[in-house]
Design a protein around this nucleic acid. Structure first.
Lengths: 87, 87
DNA sequence: TTTTTTTACGACACACGTAACAATG
DNA sequence: CATTGTTACGTGTGTCGTAAAAAAA
């Protein structure tokens, strides 16, 4: 589970679709699909239920979302803190 | 700034040396050196002062350490939570 | 047929381990 | 000379974008 994986996941979650997520991520659908599938595989958990014109988070997906948002925010905050110090 | 980078950083911080850190990380000195340097470069900040037989964290290094430990712990916790759900 | 996700694939970049080098005491 | 960190480099793995396929309505 990588930070980039979390960002991909959050984008799909918020966009409720792979095609809309990829615009925000600056990549193509196929990569989003592949990476989400790899993430699901590595966790042993399905994160989204794929339906036509709707990508619905599973229970696991919903649980991951809150944590993922927090983790990404904390990482950004850490980066900002460091770049003020310049040590 | 990747999760693996943070783990490398924490290992060096706690071992106070690249040679001792690499044992714990299951890799070789050169990789630890390269990745820490890349991390420092991407952050625009020096994290360790290298001295003979002593690797001393800078102010930035010390600030990153607390955050890094917390982030790694939170990521592990998220992983555990998900693997109990099996959704 | 249109929209959306998945799979296949070639190209390029990255991370790894080996080995040689630099520096310190 | 022993120890520790750095640099150079060949190899393999992974990620990317293109393109073709599959599925749904």
């Amino acid at each position: 589970m990588d930070v980039k994986d979390l960002k991909y996941f959050v984008a799909v979650y918020e966009a409720r679709g792979f095609s809309r997520a990829c615009l925000q991520l600056g990549t193509v659908q196929s990569n989003v699909s592949t990476r989400i599938r790899a993430l699901e595989s590595s966790l042993g958990v399905i994160l989204f239920e794929r339906r036509y014109r709707d990508v619905i988070p599973t229970e696991s997906g919903a649980k991951l979302y809150a944590r993922a948002k927090q983790l990404i925010a904390e990482l950004d905050e850490a980066r900002k803190t460091l770049q003020l110090v310049h040590g």
